[in-house]
Design a protein around this nucleic acid. Sequence first.
DNA 1: ACTTTTTTTGAGAGCGCTCCCAAAAACGGC
DNA 2: GCCGTTTTTGGGAGCGCTCTCAAAAAAAGT
Lengths: 338, 338
Amino acid sequence: MASTLEEVAQLAGVSRSTVSRVINDHPSVRPETRERVWQAIRQSGYQPHAVARSLVTSRTQIIGMIIPETVTTLFTDPFFPLLLRGATEACNAHHYQLLLSLFNDSADREEMYQRVLRRGYLDGVIVASASLNDPLVPALLRDRIPFISIGRYPHEKVHYIDVDNLGGAQMAVEHLIRLGYQRIATITGPLDMVSGQDRLEGYRQALKAHRIPVEEELIIEGDYTENGGMAAMQRLLSASPEAVFVASDMMALGALKALRQAGWQVPQDIALVSFDDVPIASAIEPALTTIRQPIERMGAMAVEMLLSRLEDSGGEEAPAHRIILPTELVIRASCGSP
Amino acid sequence: MASTLEEVAQLAGVSRSTVSRVINDHPSVRPETRERVWQAIRQSGYQPHAVARSLVTSRTQIIGMIIPETVTTLFTDPFFPLLLRGATEACNAHHYQLLLSLFNDSADREEMYQRVLRRGYLDGVIVASASLNDPLVPALLRDRIPFISIGRYPHEKVHYIDVDNLGGAQMAVEHLIRLGYQRIATITGPLDMVSGQDRLEGYRQALKAHRIPVEEELIIEGDYTENGGMAAMQRLLSASPEAVFVASDMMALGALKALRQAGWQVPQDIALVSFDDVPIASAIEPALTTIRQPIERMGAMAVEMLLSRLEDSGGEEAPAHRIILPTELVIRASCGSP
DNA sequence: ACTTTTTTTGAGAGCGCTCCCAAAAACGGC
DNA sequence: GCCGTTTTTGGGAGCGCTCTCAAAAAAAGT
């Protein structure tokens, strides 16, 4: 069981450099030498020592996935698992590894930042749903660490990928309007997150486009959690809307609970459209009409964006790359037709 | 912005070694020298290069979390997110990092194994719910890589942590018996996973203890997925059991769907008890009576077990460490009282 | 003041790899 | 078969750090 290049070299009767060439597929090795070296490698079960290699190449083939504090609590939401799954799959395909960092609230974030990023262990980073007042993105920009944001981030130098939150929300609300509902409320996401803002903006634009006045009392801020959705719905009951656009499936779950407790029937007494189309959306009763977003695909594409950015970091200051994925309306039972 | 020890040393007017000592808190440095060095470190914003350090210490402070193929599809199940959350939190606390590997079915597993493990990037590994015929655990044992299994693994050298699946299942079934049900069916987990076997065994023992004959036609193998639960329940309908112990919440969701389609009311027509107590269990209608297992805690403890194993790997062949966490019956609406 | 002991510091080697450059081998043309 | 070219190989340096060991400085003892 040889464990260094040198040992394999000895076994094959060549020099360290030649073995290195063989391993890295360098062309200028004579076929017969190459074969002899491979034999020695197989025979000894040699595995190159990645850390040593990284030291000289300054590449680790590891990318970080950072999920900031504000959303860590949402981890029971299938959004992140799906994202993670898409990302790991893409990593596998490209022979990269994914290092997962949940930046939770209790910890000293600056310290975490240092530990995770400045150690030199990461080739690049994917930041999932950074809130605007999180110091993470500015820090990454300052330190010139290659990163991709999952979720639109309004800064010229930030590369990001997102789904069309605005368009999706619009589609959802227009569906309600088409069905004849007029008094349409919304339970928003957290408004310090861009996705929360965008979905609210979509709601506003849809109403405006159909000349329905926007009533501020029909807009309640939620936080993407089930409990948040429940609380928001309870507050909304007194305004007795005909329909509600709930900005996430998990909140819709909570809203449904609140409605059930209050004795309201969905969709008979009130219609619901939500956003995400995570698996439970179709599992519950009534099944949710919702806006499907390609979460897994977004995770995978984020990885590919990052890797392609790492490839040509020679060109250095390429213009920021942005991708917006389309959403899709999935009609199920939760908004019937009045 | 000095980037090597040598540069900081020059700045502080000392040698590389002294700076290294200061950084690693070695006692034998004169207080005044130490202060001068710290000053230089702060002033230059120096950050030690972790890869270089790892090369000499052969420690990376990174541990791997491997989730094998068979369960990757379950990723929409909140089980893994919770596990991951517990694990990352423990990692944060100990200044370790978590590298996430999903071993999906399509890929060449041996190749993945090599890539993830033999590269020398991981100090140790946590394997989540390995199935018995997965070659991963034997490979880890062969290569003497320190690892902890999440989920009981019947091999004397495997350190593992698990919840009391057998006891939990028993508790669930006994609850049904206590309520007066006699014809109790079960939808099991996949029987090539130990947890699936253990929960089934708990079911058997509970019946046996109460002298209720075990009818094989009341035992249907599931796969922990919602669809699997639905299919299993459909097959079970013809046997018309009074109650069912479903080995996971997700399968119970599917079972509920099948029952609804068939027009059966829960718990009036049939009672359900399940296992896991993931968040949706309490969110759906009827809320599930289920066996709660401390998933997050298990993830955290797995990390701590691994780290403590890494600490004293001087003693080498310590006897395998095993921990079984207790479960708890959470009574909600899905099994009423007949 | 001069040893002896202890504390503090510096120099060197080495972790396992890649990469550059020069030496050696193979090839071609005459 | 000899010389110039090209291909293939080997040796050395170096990535940034830790760690051992010996030298230098400080403290203690006589």
